[in-house]
């Protein structure tokens, strides 16, 4: 599937930063600002908590949203306006953020009046990305830095058969 990667990156960037700003009151920062705050920007994928959401229709694929511990804890607290949140609330917050981000990314793939339908998000292993890689999906990666942590977004896509 041929995509304009620059346009897709712009779509993803806008979706991620706007969702985090509007829903969680988090704002973009530079990587060195995060490091000054003591947040490791070189965190490995294994240390991230991720939510995966698949889509089908005009194109099929998946969006992985993986966040570091700082952001994982802050999402639910900021969304609910509470200092502490349970693990279930943290997972739900990450899934809803994934849902909103994915919902705002998939219009990129719409064509000829056909849209993409998104499936419910799940907490999933970032390692599941390998399944999509092995099946020959195209992909695009994006990292977002906000004042509460790091989000790594990977989109897998291919034309629907």
């Amino acid at each position: 599937m041929l995509v304009d990667k620059e346009k897709l990156e712009s779509y993803v960037s806008k979706a991620v930063y706007r969702t985090l700003e509007v829903t969680c009151y988090m704002f973009p920062v530079e990587a060195d600002e995060l490091q000054e705050m003591g947040i490791d920007t070189n965190v490995s994928d294994d240390e991230l908590t991720s939510s995966v959401i698949t889509f089908e229709g005009a194109a099929e694929g998946a969006v992985f949203i993986a966040v570091n511990d700082d952001l994982y804890h802050a999402l639910a607290s900021n969304m609910l306006g509470e200092d502490t949140a349970s693990k279930d609330e943290k997972d739900a917050a990450l899934c809803e953020i994934a849902n909103i981000i994915c919902g705002n990314i998939v219009p990129f793939f719409a064509k000829n009046g056909e849209i993409c339908k998104i499936n419910p998000p799940e907490i999933g292993s970032f390692k599941n990305k390998k399944l999509f890689e092995s099946k020959g999906y195209g992909h695009e990666k994006f990292e977002a830095y906000v004042d509460e942590g790091i989000a790594k977004v990977t989109i897998y896509f291919k034309d629907a058969d």
Partner: peptide
């Protein structure tokens, strides 16, 4: 209240 982005919809 939705992520729906398709103008026609």
């Amino acid at each position: 209240v939705s992520t729906e982005n398709d103008d026609k919809r």
